[in-house]
Amino acid sequence: MGKKIGNAINRIGIPTFAVGALLLVLLIAAGALGQSIPTLISDILKRIGMNGVLVLAMLPAIKSGVGPNFALPIGIEGGLMAMIICMQFDFEGWGLIGAATLLCILFCSILGFLYGKLMNAVKGAEMTIATYSGFSMCAFFNILWLAIPFSNRKMGWMLGNGLRETIDMKKFGAKNIISDFLAFKIGKVTIPVGMILTLALLCFITWLFFQTKTGMAIYAGGQNPRFAEASGLNINRNRIIANVFSTILAGLGIILYSQGYGYTQLYNGPMNMAFPAVAAVLVGGATASKASIPNVLIGVCLFQGLMTTGMPVMNQIFTGTDLSDIMRIIIQNGVILYALTKVKSGGDR
């Protein structure tokens, strides 16, 4: 009996199981403390929608053998730049989202291509180099935000030049525009249909991509490069394609995230967005060399569920102190750290 349970846990994966159990405990605690469960669930759903695509961006990178995309900020900056440029030209509402999406794909393709070239040059040390190239890209864009003469008053500081730290999407009629699209309520729970559809669509596209000949080749190259080589595949080219794909998803992910959050966060905002996304996919049962769409979805649900439930529960337990925020940071980083320790590097060789 004990053995059977042990086997089942092994199959689900220990991190997934541990985080799932913690989430369950927190949800029960929230209920017992008199929190509104429907509000909590609405929040969780919204945050899943906001973060899902950023987590999905891990998939192509992992499958291609590059490992989790720690350089997520690169794609995020590409997406932000696309949005800012469209805002500069006063695009609003759906026009803004549409134009930014197109521009984002263009920018992120270029950035992803260059990043892919870099990853091919540093085979074996991808994770570290990726993390630092993400950080460097943030620094570089910080300069751009200040140096490029954007002139739209809605984005600038009250005084002086350069862009604001956070830009209100409401001023461009784009706050919650996707979240509220077709949204409806079941009882008191709000279902953000627009976001869920977007996430589902991108998941489908990703899945479909990995059913194609190219996708299959990328996957084989990630699993066993020598095998792929012997089948006449160009592994470096495939890794670049995967990185471009991942970077584009990161860019689209930040557009989805920003509209849900209501603000575009510039400067150091993107810097630390890679870790939660990496943690989420690992919590979902992926490893550094293997990942699937279910890993992404399970991971984002568990991780965001934990973050969303954790906070109000902590608030209530530690009312009137600063402790709640500290606890939040401890939980968030604790889960990230835990998931990262579970990264098994290398393929099956």
């Binding site: 699993q223 066993n224 095998f227 080589e229």
Partner: peptide, 22 residues
Amino acid sequence: KGVGLLLSSPIDLNIAFSAMEV
């Protein structure tokens, strides 16, 4: 092990893979 197989992929894909790509 090194060149011949994708160990964590199904047998059928292993068999079809090269013909598919080439």
